Amino acid sequence: MSTQNTQMSENAITPSVLNKMFGRALMYGASWNYERMQNLGFLYMMVPALKKIYKNDTPEMSEAMKRHLEFFNTHQTAAPFIGGVAAAMEENEGNAGGRAISGIKVGLMGPLAGIGDSLIWLTLVPICFSIGASYSAEGGLLGVLIALALINIINVPLKYFGLKFGYSSGSKFIQESAARGTLDTITNMAIALGLVLVGGLIPQMVGVTFGLQFTQGELVVSVQELINGLIPGVIPMLLTLLMCYLVRKGKSPVFLIVVTLVAAVALTALGVLTVA
């Protein structure tokens, strides 16, 4: 057996490693933060695979960990599937495939967030709690326990088998794509799709409402309605582009969040902005 094949065999992710990842995936949402959303939870889930792949090579391990500290946000039930795909890519590509790994994560997190929200939050959770409510109509915790049990009977296996399927399908996908030379094309498409989806969320996630009004006789002109009538969503877009520019210039995201919060409170007190 060649040295390369021996090294790949030694670094192969075993079922026990995937089980460790699954156990950590159950605590995935415990470290959500405003700066990069679910990045800490995703890295925490990935650590067993990264330790298996990179061993005690500190520089290689550090590079991989930094890569998974990038912004990440998706539905928690879908995260293990993406983690499985990322683990397969780490195993096959290593740090040399860092751009592809980040691109696949960005490309998958948006669509799977939409699917997870629709199937879990908007379908499974209401159904299960409706059933539970019927058992707690006269009070008591039985209905709550039933609802939680029903949700997790479906939710937990989805995470477990999603992780396993993501890893197995990810390995097969990488091998087939490498053979055809299409991985770079797919990566670029995934990045583009992810950016389009994230950009489409800006008007929903960034809210700026002006409170200024101009009065001419009985005519009242709202600045907010005037802007929305001319270019809907332009203020959230401009604010987001400004933040991206400042981050690229080296400004800390935490600093920008604090400044934005203070500015919003001050402008609202002055009547320039209003609570939507």
Rank of each mutant, 00 (worst) to 15 (best):
M1G: 11
M1W: 13
S2Q: 07
T3Q: 09
Q4G: 02
T6P: 02
E10T: 09
N11T: 14
P15K: 11
P15L: 10
V17R: 01
K20P: 00
F22G: 02
A30Q: 13
Y34T: 04
R36P: 00
L40P: 01
Y44N: 11
M46F: 05
V47L: 11
L50W: 02
I53Q: 04
K55P: 03
E60W: 00
S62W: 02
L69Y: 13
E70Y: 03
H75R: 08
P80H: 05
G84E: 00
A87T: 01
E93T: 01
N95G: 14
A96S: 09
R99A: 13
G103L: 01
I104S: 02
K105W: 08
L108Y: 06
P111L: 03
P111N: 07
I115W: 04
W121T: 13
T123P: 08
P126Q: 09
P126Y: 12
C128A: 15
I131F: 07
S134T: 15
Y135T: 06
A137G: 10
I146D: 04
L148K: 01
N152S: 11
P157L: 12
Y160M: 14
F161R: 04
Y167R: 01
S168A: 15
K172N: 12
I174S: 03
S177K: 01
D184Y: 04
T185Q: 12
T187E: 10
G194N: 05
G194W: 04
L201P: 01
V208G: 01
V208T: 15
Q213N: 13
F214E: 10
Q216Y: 14
L219N: 14
S222Y: 08
G233N: 14
S252K: 06
F255C: 00
V259L: 12
L261W: 12
A263L: 15
A264K: 00
A266R: 06
L267W: 06
A269S: 11
L270F: 15
G271Q: 06
G271K: 00
T274W: 00
V275S: 09
